[in-house]
Design a protein around this nucleic acid. Structure first.
Length: 678
RNA sequence: GCGCCCGUAGCUCAGUCCGGAUAGAGCGUUAGCCUCCGGAGCUAAAGGUCGCGCGUUCGAAUCGCGCCGGGCGCACCA
């Protein structure tokens, strides 16, 4: 409804400008005035025309206004401020349209691939990984809302040094040398002779990985373990490789559970080992050589390496070392090389494909129980690339028209190289449609680190220099960071306590309901916390902020929603109509409190479109917050239950209904669950 | 050296794409609001050289240039 009116207004403005001044205006901007009393849509056209016409904006607007052919649905046009042309809409038709429900976007043909999460499968996930997954997930939800078919990929680097290090720790530090022994460690969540890790195997590996890091530092000769393990993994078909596979599988399961309880699901898990086994790189290498996109250096410090020359590209201008080595002098391919091959596959440009089989995670990870995973995540079919064979009924993966790689800003350079690789192969269009969804990291504030040190031990204590910094990077190698599941646990404790303080008498069934609501609130708070900040902003993590449930938070949104249900329930209890009486909806009486909510609700599609265009998903969170604020003001000013006049009451019910529908859809977009009660 | 990001109220951030109406929130502080639709809420107060300078413009938090402060990147690591 709103987009149509906007277009009609734009056309009317264009026509009036042509008629009055003979001016051709291509772009007509329509924005929201600062206050609703000034109008519903504001057009600053007169300011643009002022220069060419050598007249004051206000005078231009005053001349333009009477020349406007007001389209249907527009009540009035008025000159405001220094020369704004402000439009006032007919309120009742917009309200009626909103009550009828939103129409889902038309299906679009372009398949979109979103890659996110991509956590090294060697330790528990931390809160930086959560930012990635939540941003990726909301991008996916938004794209689907806009009508795109979306495939979600979570890439597993199962052959990298990080996995090798943990395996080296198991084998060399812990004497876990057989698959059977490793399976026991995974099952019992304890190392031989060590304590049980109630939070699960991924937590055990967190500590083990840090221990390996310390060992490498203390005894540099032990670094040979890494190469030994890497070679064994690459060779395959040996005990070490099988231990590595077991470790990866267990930790991936834990990651999926961590994300699963936040409502995040994936379609396919491509594995680096399969990129190797299926010789993706060999195919990509042949393509690159054939097109002359890469060069074998014969002299200089890169002698013997295959290099992608970036010196000609202006994006890389001025860099000390603008060329990127894809094949080392030893003949092995770099990560970026493999990434180019993977990106080619995503677009269906590689003459190769994976095999696939179903992957069923063990949802019980220790920190997460299967019962916490929402059904839509648990039942979502999840596939994984297979080393051989694979299922015959696997859906077709890859062959996307557009690709988003969600990965933090530190990866900007390699991501640019990947795009440049596509371009060098002649795939300029695909390079254009490859988007690096970049975002800033989650760091640790000095205060948060101090709290960690108090809570979990002195190994979290920062050095005096680090204490002075605005934040420190989390480091898996050092074991420094806030684990995702620990944060969720703290949030759960908070929300359980809040609920316990609010609910007096609860029957036996109330307990499970209370727990479900506590989870909804904890997850809502977490997701909103990560979403509300612009993506280019470093989050210097602070426990108090993350654990806050008041003000600009997820629970504020949830609370506003729960309030509407309370009203509808009470209306029914009192025997009053809780639904909107359609023929009782008056044409007038839609005051600014009511209308502001309707207008906000109607603008959600615009916000969503813009959020995806700019990848600034925080815009969705802010929009939801503004809508909730409007509702809360209305709630306090315009009571529904005690309102004796049925017409007035009906109007208010209509607004509450609209708010409920729209906020519900927004929360779904943001992946924030709806609690039953609060 | 080159490139990218950040700098707005005590703190955390919107607003910058596309210049325009008294620069907005939340937290914190202070003062109020439960004969109520459940205070995870609402009302209000106090709080701002929009990092600095120059420029463009009728008009700059927003655009350009130059600085300053902070972060990140520029691997035969992943």
């Amino acid at each position: 409804m709103l987009p149509r009116i906007r277009e009609a207004i734009a056309a009317a403005v264009r026509a009036a400008a042509k008629e009055r001044f003979g001016a051709d205006v291509e772009r007509v901007v329509l924005e929201r005035p600062p206050r609703i009393a000034l109008g519903d849509l504001a057009c600053p056209i007169a300011f643009d025309l002022a220069k060419a016409l050598k007249k004051a904006p206000r005078a231009i607007a005053t001349e333009l206004a009477p020349a406007l052919q007001l389209p249907e649905g527009v009540r009035q046009a008025r000159v405001e401020g220094a020369g704004y042309l402000n439009f006032f809409l007919e309120r009742a038709p917009v309200v009626r349209a909103l009550l009828a429900g939103s129409v889902s976007a038309a299906a679009r043909p372009e398949k979109v691939i979103v890659e996110h999460t991509n956590i090294n499968p060697n330790k528990a996930a931390h809160i930086g990984h959560l930012r990635n997954a939540v941003l990726g997930d909301v991008l996916v939800r938004s794209l689907r809302r806009l009508g795109y078919p979306v495939e979600v990929q979570n890439y597993l680097d199962d052959t990298g040094v990080q996995v090798a290090d943990v395996v080296a720790g198991l084998v060399h530090l812990q004497g876990v040398r057989t698959v059977a022994a490793a399976a026991e460690v995974v099952r019992d969540r304890r190392l031989p002779g060590g304590p049980v890790y109630a939070k699960g195997f991924a937590y055990l590996c967190w500590d083990l990985y840090a221990e390996v890091g310390r060992t490498y530092a203390a005894r540099p000769e032990t670094k040979a373990w890494r190469d030994e393990v890497l070679q064994a993994i690459e060779a395959g078909d040996n005990e070490t490789a099988r231990i590595a596979a077991l470790v990866v599988e267990a930790i991936v399961s834990a990651h999926l559970a961590t994300m699963g309880r936040l409502g995040i699901a994936y379609d396919v898990l491509p594995r680096e080992s399969d990129i190797i086994h299926k010789h993706f790189w060999a195919k990509a290498f042949a393509m690159l050589k054939e097109k002359g996109a890469i060069h074998l250096e014969t002299e200089g410090k890169h002698a013997g390496c295959w290099v992608l020359r970036l010196s000609e590209s202006e994006e890389f201008a001025g860099m000390e070392e603008p060329d990127k080595i894809l094949v080392r002098s030893t003949g092995t391919v770099t990560y970026t090389g493999k990434d180019i091959a993977y990106q080619l596959w995503k677009f269906g440009l590689l003459d190769a494909d994976f095999d696939y089989d179903r992957f069923r995670p063990a949802w019980d990870s220790g920190s997460v129980e299967a019962a916490e995973i929402p059904a839509e995540v648990r039942d979502h079919p999840l596939w994984r690339t297979a080393h051989a064979g694979g299922a015959a009924d696997a859906p077709p993966f890859g062959r996307g028209d557009r690709v988003f790689n969600v990965i933090d800003v530190r990866q900007s350079y390699p991501q640019k190289v990947v795009r440049e690789g596509l371009r060098a192969l002649g795939y300029a269009g695909e390079a254009e449609r490859s988007t690096h969804f970049s975002y800033e990291i989650v760091g640790l504030s000095a205060k948060a680190a101090r709290e960690l040190a108090e809570r979990f031990g002195e190994e979290y204590r920062l050095s005096p220099e680090d204490e002075q910094k605005p934040f420190v990077e989390m480091s898996g190698r050092k074991g420094l960071g806030v684990k995702a599941d620990d944060l969720v646990e703290l949030l759960l404790e908070r929300s359980r306590a809040e609920i316990a303080a609010r609910r007096t008498t609860d029957a036996a069934t109330g307990a499970t309901e209370a727990e479900r609501d506590a989870r909804a609130i904890a997850i809502g708070a977490l997701r909103y916390f990560l979403l509300k900040v612009g993506r280019n902003k470093v989050i210097a993590f602070d426990f108090d902020e993350a654990l806050n449930f008041e003000g600009d938070t997820g629970p504020y949104l949830q609370y506003s929603l729960v309030r509407t249900d309370n009203i509808f329930r009470k209306l029914e209890e009192k025997g009053l109509p809780a639904a909107v009486a359609p023929d009782g909806l008056p044409e007038d009486g839609w005051d600014d409190d009511l209308w502001g909510i309707a207008l906000d609700a109607a603008s959600t599609p615009d916000v969503a479109e813009r959020a995806v265009d700019t990848l600034e998903l925080a815009a969705l969170a802010r929009h939801a917050f503004g809508l909730a604020q409007g509702f809360n003001t209305f709630y306090h000013r315009q009571p529904i239950l005690q309102e004796p006049d049925p017409v007035v009451r009906n109007r208010r019910i209509a607004i509450a209904r609209i708010f409920r529908m729209e906020m519900s859809r927004l929360l779904e977009l943001l992946g924030i669950p709806e609690p039953g009660r609060m």
